[in-house]
Design a binder for these strands. Structure first.
Lengths: 162, 162
DNA sequence: TTAGTTGCAAATATTTTGCACCCTT
DNA sequence: AAGGGTGCAAAATATTTGCAACTAA
């Protein structure tokens, strides 16, 4: 699959702005005794204005369009901070770079991924969620998180003959 | 989690021998016009006699105990061949090295992973499998494969206070 | 001023590839 | 003989870290 193919085809999701994130992020930063910074805000803002499931190489590219001096390490450090703060989560659908997804104020969901065009569709299935708990219980596990990814051909790709 | 911790704790699974694998592997090798080799057999045999969900660094270590001259590249090449032949599958539970799992003659299953001790438990839930199909259908997807991983604390780790 | 933040380069970690030489067919 | 298999080193990919200079508190 060509790099970045999925970007344009991805389904729209509710978008949060820097304002939505600023509160929780500030609280986390303060609690850890860290400082605030303009570059961090720029990275967060750029991430929020991009499509979901973004790789950090693409994010850096977008950040540099506004401030060419920003380094890759800072992007990694910033996203790791957001992850520690529980505002974003990482996804690894295929091999290759880890993708980041905003989770603040969004309900849990899992993913359907088209192996041909890269389309990513989010889904929630309450029955599956409940059955998971049951399975975990049967094995004595206390469930903390899960990852449920289904790969196949999306409707468009099925039509256009894969 | 300490490297390799999960190895000893992993649940036993039906073990296949080189004899089980030799037939399908030979057929695949012949169909692709490849040659056979002793080192390949040694790697396959060593993989089969190890626990499930093995990383290639650990596999190389075990292979070198029998033949110190073997190189890492050959281990990668051999396991990639097995994967192309549909005999093994890769798993990526956490970050870090990809783990390999034999699938020949084994029914599909998913995984429960203990985030504290690394225990890996395999499970199958027919109801979940069926619901997955339904979800895929609702979104117009033709499902080809899926990955369902649940992370939490196993019974032992819950008892010993995590 | 104290301590976190940043860019850059170097280091890690994982996996792949080029190439000369060896082994199968 | 022809062509795949192997080890080694180098490359490629993804991510992290050391460090000196910069900036927030």
């Amino acid at each position: 699959m060509p790099k970045g193919t999925h970007a344009a085809k991805e389904e729209a999701a509710t978008r949060r702005t820097l304002e939505d994130v600023r509160g929780p992020l500030r609280a986390f930063v303060k609690a850890k005794g860290l400082h605030e910074s303009k570059i961090r805000d720029l990275i967060v803002e750029t991430f929020l204005s991009s499509q979901e499931h973004l790789g950090l190489d693409q994010l850096l590219e977008r950040v540099r369009a506004k401030n060419p001096g920003v380094g890759m390490a800072t992007v990694y450090r910033t996203m790791r901070l957001l992850e520690e703060a529980g505002l974003v989560q990482t996804r690894n659908f295929n091999a290759g770079p880890t993708l980041y997804e905003m989770v603040l104020g969004r309900p849990h969901h899992d993913h359907l991924i088209c192996t041909r065009c890269g389309l990513i569709v989010e889904f929630v299935s309450e029955p599956i969620e409940r059955l998971q708990e049951k399975v975990a219980e049967q094995h004595g596990f206390q469930l903390m998180r899960h990852r449920h990814e289904m790969f196949g051909l999306c409707a468009d790709c099925r039509r256009s003959g894969a």
